[in-house]
Design a protein around this nucleic acid. Structure first.
Lengths: 230, 230
DNA sequence: CCATCATATAGTCACAATGACCATAACTCC
DNA sequence: GGAGTTATGGTCATTGTGACTATATGATGG
């Protein structure tokens, strides 16, 4: 091994959750950041992450980072991109393999927050350390241009959900209102959800049906690992 | 820097070119492989690549690899995925950042071939070293599911081209015949090509128009670097 | 120079997908 | 019981697209 390799390998994760915006009350994307406790960029907010242990799988490192930061388990985790520009970290050459994850909204509400961990609305971030603003921008772009909304929405929701909740997820991600009737038509035609027969009562209006995901309809895209590749 | 990092960083590239199939004469995808001249997997075919020099950008390393292997310059180069499974290389932990590239068809014809470099049809590869078969499969999948066929086709063609040539590229990538009239209608509506006003004479039939790419229509997806991200 | 060949290029028709709306259903709250 | 509010079922027009038909036009070979 004539390794003249001088780069250090890191794994970072962009973690998304859906929660109501403080002002508007609408569902929006939020993500947790950690405050840097050492140079460079001491004191600035950054993506959760760390050096890659030599004996840990890439996705496992991302997942662990996520758990250590938020106490949560991702319902969706996928490699985003590898950033390795020479100048992205002062001093050493750092190559960061970045993952993006989605965590369930209601669980995210109870997620750990502390002096050095804080959630921010995805579209109003402070200036982050390194090139992390660019990384988040790219993650947002991927999230929004992802064809496969089905699994994404699933990751944000629980086992059962109403079409209104599902619509909320789509509206938050796409940042535009969707017609309820048309949305229902499309979703039902896609066959990705199944009527549980149950209804959700309690609201001051007609009780909506509860749906569940149709597991048999996964047309996945789990990177090169997914079933579509085999 | 408390780097307990034990992984070695490599960069590999999946290089595609379009050339006529030997038997059918139809355009198909080919890619160059290099024979391994050391253990592990000595003698087996593998993707071109090498260790990442500490002072070289990732894309530059991929591009250099490509030039050293084929003598060609890529007209399209994009990061594919980073493979880092613990067991993918016997002995050391190797993390490979893989790029995929497209080279122009007519240039690929004159590409270097030697004892240790050979072109193979993409759908009839031998058993490759490491997990490289899986990597090629994933690259093929990405190529075929890429929304942005425009830039892909452009990469395979020259400055100007006929719609028939463009159609050939699409047919080769998608592996199915396309209706000439419908194809023309769609492409013209997309606004991605511009009529040069010139025609290509010489064939024993009506001379087709020559088109050029409409540079202003790039709705790119150059990873996080592209104009769409800014 | 004309007939033929082979592809280029222009239309047509039917159908699927989708956005914009309209109407009715069925709970809770007052 | 009526009002308020969302759920859910339709309609209509527009668009995108596959399947096909018809015409255009230069090259070739007699």
């Amino acid at each position: 091994m004539t390794s003249q390799n001088q780069a250090t390998l890191a794994v970072s994760t962009v973690i998304f959750a859906l929660r109501p915006d403080e002002a508007s009350g609408l569902m929006t994307l939020w993500l947790p950041l950690v405050r840097r406790i050492r140079e460079p960029h001491l004191g600035q907010w950054a993506l959760p992450g760390g050096w890659l242990p030599g004996d840990e799988e890439l996705a496992a490192a991302a997942s662990r980072t996520l758990r250590e930061t938020t106490g949560l388990t991702p319902k969706y985790l996928e490699q985003l991109y590898t950033f390795g520009d020479l100048g992205r970290s002062p001093g050493t050459r750092v190559v960061s393999i970045v993952y993006w994850a989605l965590v369930q909204s209601d669980e995210a509400a109870l997620a750990a927050v502390g002096e050095n961990v804080q959630w921010f609305p995805a579209d109003r971030l402070p200036e982050l350390a390194f090139d992390h603003n660019r990384i988040v921008d790219y993650a947002l772009w991927r999230l929004r241009t992802k064809v496969e909304y089905a699994r994404i929405a699933h990751a944000f929701l629980g086992e059962t959900f109403t079409l209104a909740q599902l619509r909320d997820v789509h509206e938050a991600v796409l940042q535009k209102p969707l017609d309820p009737a048309n949305f229902r038509r499309t979703v039902e035609a896609s066959g990705t959800v199944v009527d549980t027969g149950q209804h959700l009562a309690g609201a001051r209006h007609r009780p909506p049906r509860l749906y569940r995901y149709n597991d048999s309809s996964r047309l996945a895209d789990q990177g090169p690992l997914g079933p579509s590749i085999g």
